[in-house]
Design a protein around this nucleic acid. Structure first.
Lengths: 148, 148
DNA sequence: ATTAAATTTTTGTTAAAAAAAGAGTTTGTA
DNA sequence: TACAAACTCTTTTTTTAACAAAAATTTAAT
């Protein structure tokens, strides 16, 4: 992937702008491979992320707000995103007893199993995506990412 | 932005997976700022990109296929994306005389003017996004991006 | 010259995302 | 208690994207 080649005509581009465009190109490319990887499982990236977050809760439920803070999508969409996961039987929803505004969301056994097989495919894809990096480069890339 | 903090619970995550997630978080964050920056101008990121590509053509028209090769979206949507820009008076469409399958797309003077003011806002935003980076770090980040 | 194939763009349909407004619940304060 | 404000979630509406298929034109082959 080479930005210069893709953004041929704008020669006078400053480094910050170039970097941002480059970032977008990279993330679009990566996103495509992730979508393709998850396609056989019939879940979106966001749905996959929710499942992972729920598993990370280790039995403890997560409410919508928590999910949202750890995710990218907008609150209003999280509701329906969870709806879809419920339809698939991957998660369960239950109103919190101590604060009835809150909705507690759990991953089901079925959800955990599905997630396991997704993980295998995703891990393979992740490795493929960064195959041109050495371990040191990856470590440093993560350090740089923290500066955003 | 710190992944560890956001993906708290998954301790056993491998470096490639961690990096990919980190990338997604960063690009989502950056995307949000870009959307916010363009919002006052009432154009989407994609529309902005089309305008930039057209300006880069230096008077020469671009057809839909060319636009598409330099963009992310699907062909079928590029048609409608250009429709929106025409409605705003930012671009013009004209069928090619030598090959009437082709549609030539030009940026208008109004479009160029609008784009100029977007550029100022976007450049400012780009600089803000990478404010924590030194120039060397940015250069190296671009080198690393080329490895994807 | 006709027909088949390829190219370029558009249209229609469906699903997903963004934005804004709304409903129910709790908390704090007078 | 009562009332306002804050919190959490849902609903509705509008945009945008994805996918499949069709339309229009050109190219190539027989």
């Amino acid at each position: 992937m080479n930005v210069e080649e893709i953004i041929k005509t704008d020669k006078k581009m400053e480094l910050p702008s170039k970097t941002v465009i480059h970032l977008m190109l990279v993330s679009n490319k990566v996103n495509e491979t992730i979508n393709a990887t998850l396609k056989p499982f019939d879940v979106s990236i966001q749905q996959f992320n929710v499942l992972r977050i729920l598993r990370g809760q280790c039995g403890k439920p997560a409410n919508l707000k928590t999910l949202n803070e750890r995710m990218v999508t907008k609150m209003s969409n999280t509701t329906r995103l969870v709806d879809k996961l419920i339809l698939k039987g991957y998660v369960k929803r239950k109103t919190c007893e101590t604060n009835r505004r809150k909705i507690e969301i759990y991953i089901t056994t079925k959800g955990e199993k599905a997630l396991s097989s997704m993980d295998i495919a995703m891990n393979k894809n992740d490795k493929h995506i960064v195959q041109n990096f050495s371990e040191e480069e990856l470590e440093y890339l993560n350090v740089l990412f923290n500066k955003f």
